[in-house]
Write a protein that binds this DNA or RNA. Structure first.
Lengths: 153, 153
DNA sequence: TCACATTTAATTGTTCGCAATTGAATGTGC
DNA sequence: GCACATTCAATTGCGAACAATTAAATGTGA
């Protein structure tokens, strides 16, 4: 009985890797977002930063980094590009000169209205009910948090 | 009755975005993989390429790209680094001179044995049963494929 | 107070990821 | 057979992502 694959190799097969499922799904999302975000003049990570700021404004870089799991090496140049696009302002905190506070400009605030069209386009592209997506999201977040807990050890 | 958030803003809230769940889970996986892959001298995308090659060897760049959803702009420099690490060889196909065939070196083949320890470490880190992970993986792959179908339109 | 550790952003260097372009090889339609 | 389109990898340029380091501001203990 010839076999194409050895059973011992199963754990190393690409199609058996949940990490690749997640990795490739993230890229697929990125590609779906791209044309939508192009109209806003944003990249996907920039869009995430704007989501954070639309919820709360005038926050230090560190707070944004904690919410998005990104560090200053990623955020500093990204925020400078958002500043160059006149969407945010970067100012040193007067209370703690180490912190740089990120505030939305009027244009940054205004972009929120244009962004409202994005989530519904994504929902349509995922071709899935809201409840299914919410359930999946919660599972993935739970997995992510368990992984992050291991890293923190 | 004061509300912190408007209901109209719910679709734009970071915690409601499945894409962010996927995005941040991908990064969490990356961080868990890093110390494991450091021992193999591989980055995560390089590990994915090696997974493909351990299944089948002597394939054109295009085939690897189709399996991983990556293009030559990503793969060409990555494969050159794997070649510099003596894990693969790159040769022009004699039948079709446009194609570059990627073959494993003996060291590339040998690395597979060292890599067998990786999946079980990941399984432990995800703190989850195999059947749960398989179910999640299948859901995520189905979502990814629906997203990719939209892009292909 | 003063030495010392901690916190915070910024910087540097390496590796992805992709769009757009180039150039060579191949396939095709007439 | 020959113009033409197509295929494939390589290249270029830009924007992440992160490790490691730097530098300044702040906090802490003796």
């Amino acid at each position: 009985m010839p076999r194409k694959h050895s059973a011992a190799d199963a754990p190393l097969r690409l199609d058996n890797q949940i990490c690749f499922a997640v990795y490739s799904a993230a890229h697929a999302f990125n590609r779906v977002y791209k044309p939508l975000l192009d109209r806003l003049g944003l990249t996907y990570p920039q869009y995430l930063v704007m989501l954070v700021l639309w919820e709360r404004d005038d926050v230090p870089v560190k707070d944004i980094g904690e919410k998005l799991f990104l560090d200053s090496g990623t955020l500093t140049p990204l925020l400078k590009r958002l500043e160059a696009a006149h969407l945010v302002r970067r100012t040193r905190s007067s209370e703690d000169e180490r912190q740089v506070l990120i505030a939305l400009t009027p244009q940054g605030h205004a972009l929120k209205e244009k962004a409202r069209a994005v989530p519904q386009s994504i929902l349509a592209a995922s071709d899935c009910s809201v409840s299914e997506l919410v359930a999946m999201k919660d599972e993935i977040v739970a997995l992510r948090d368990r992984l992050n807990a291991v890293i923190g050890e």
